[in-house]
């Protein structure tokens, strides 16, 4: 059951630029197709992993915000998941979940839990006591206070956590091909000594990270208009 991670030959050895391992714009233009599917697979892995991770850790943070004794155990468990290198996590999961997207997603989700949990909790903790008092004075119940006052005011920290989690996950997903989930890492690995290939595949990963980061920033701007009002004054 030995799984091959064979390095495929993607270079034409007769072409001078490619065989001399130069940086070949012509080769890139001709071969750009091969990066499109891995790029979207990479984006898919990142977005799904961050979305699931956000769902889990946001819920955990809301619970731990009220029941503070939960903070330490949750931090320790997610801290260990965060510490285990994802490349190791992929192979530790293989005997249990097999090769494919699922294995990659489980490892990636495990990795982002701590980042988002910590930021959501920090955001909620930073909500000024006076604001909460004002909300209570207006007759808000605990649930209303949470969703109408505390969560909105925690959004900058929550979104900061989401941005960190997303860019980190793009980086880790380059290793997802070890779990049989493809992505841009598979392209990098396919010919790691070929300059043109490394630059395009690696560059696309950076572009993906920057694009997703910018997207979250735009969403943050849109849903927290008051932060701009303060800054503009």
């Amino acid at each position: 059951m030995i799984l091959e991670l064979a390095q495929v030959q993607i270079r034409d050895r007769t072409d001078t630029c490619e065989s001399n391992n130069g940086f070949c714009p012509d080769w890139i233009a001709d071969n750009f197709d091969r990066y499109v599917d891995p790029f979207f697979q990479h984006a898919y892995l990142t977005v799904v992993a961050v979305a699931i991770g956000f769902g889990i850790s946001f819920s955990l943070a809301l619970v731990a915000y009220r029941r503070r004794w939960l903070i330490n155990p949750v931090t320790q468990v997610t801290g260990i998941l965060y510490t285990v290198p994802s490349i190791a996590a992929f192979f530790l999961l293989l005997p249990i979940t097999g090769r494919g997207d699922d294995t990659a997603l489980i490892a990636l989700v495990a990795y982002v839990l701590l980042i988002i949990f910590r930021n959501v909790l920090a955001g909620l903790d930073n909500v000024p006591e006076e604001t909460k008092d004002a909300g209570r004075g207006m007759g808000l119940t605990d649930r209303q206070l949470l969703w109408r006052v505390e969560v909105p005011l925690a959004l900058p920290e929550i979104m900061a956590g989401l941005r960190i989690a997303t860019t980190t996950t793009v980086g880790l997903a380059t290793l997802a091909f070890f779990a049989g989930a493809g992505g841009l890492g598979e392209q990098i690995f396919s010919d790691i000594t070929f300059k043109s290939n490394v630059v395009v595949a690696g560059g696309l990963a950076v572009v993906l990270a920057a694009a997703l980061d910018g997207l979250i920033l735009l969403v943050q701007r849109a849903i927290t208009p008051w932060t701009r009002a303060v800054a503009a004054r």
Partner: peptide, 16 residues
Amino acid sequence: GRAVPSLALIAFFVAY
């Protein structure tokens, strides 16, 4: 630093 995948960084060094 976070936006540059470690595999891409290593690959860049190997190639260049």
